[in-house]
């Protein structure tokens, strides 16, 4: 049985009141969801609270899930909306489509590659990973979210576009900008 049809079966059973089926869904998605929420919120306890809320919302609206969509995409759309509500409540800045991302004195746009000195090559891969993890917190939330969906959750650009209801090109552009900002921040931290 494929993962998708297996999930549809779990959803159907959960809709009939089978709690074990929904628990199986929770078990399957708790890791990727918490990977996503911990990096996007930057707080462990908040991520745990949000993950619970997201699963409760998913359970409450399970009847609205349509099997022609991937369950993961549907679940992460709920999670992303939950996160956006949180950012709005906290009045954290979000990035609009037309906006150039400000970074220091120079605006960060996708220009020609800067061939300057390799910050990355100064570190071992493991060390670089922990630096990436720490530096990611400094990237604006809206860009960080797209970076996390791509690199931590390993969604395709098409899947991220479906989750965020954005054009694929815009998603790619934003992920590249997040990576470029991350690289610049790593360089700055030396």
């Amino acid at each position: 049985m494929s993962s998708q049809s297996d999930e549809i079966d779990l959803v159907k059973r959960a809709l009939r009141g089978d709690k074990e089926a929904f628990e199986a869904i929770v078990m399957r998605y708790q890791q990727p969801l918490l990977n996503y929420l911990s990096r996007t919120t930057g707080e462990r306890e908040l991520a745990l609270d949000f993950a619970q809320e997201v699963f409760l919302k998913a359970y409450a609206s399970l009847a609205s899930y349509r099997p022609r969509y991937k369950f993961s995409t549907w679940l992460f759309t709920i999670a992303s909306n939950h996160l956006i509500d949180h950012w709005r409540r906290k009045k954290l800045p979000t990035v609009s489509l037309d906006q150039t991302v400000d970074f220091g004195d120079s605006p960060l746009t996708l220009q020609v590659a800067d061939p300057r000195a390799g910050v990355a090559r100064q570190y071992e891969l493991r060390d670089l990973r922990s630096r990436v993890e720490a530096t990611l917190r400094k990237v604006p939330p809206a860009l960080r979210e797209l970076f996390v969906l791509r690199h931590v959750n390993e969604f395709s650009y098409e899947e991220i576009a479906a989750i965020k209801r954005l054009p694929v090109g815009t998603v790619k552009n934003r992920v590249f900008q997040a990576k470029e900002m991350l690289r610049a921040l790593l360089e700055e931290a030396i």
């Binding site: 890791q31 090559r121 990973r129 931590v152």
Partner: peptide, 26 residues
């Protein structure tokens, strides 16, 4: 330069999920 960061970005460690998380949700 970017290839190294690209590789590092794909291997970030998993969040440490509490053993009773699913039970708490349920």
């Amino acid at each position: 330069e970017r290839r190294v960061i690209h590789l590092a970005s794909f291997g970030l460690p998993d969040f440490d999920v509490p053993a009773d998380f699913a039970r708490r949700v349920m």
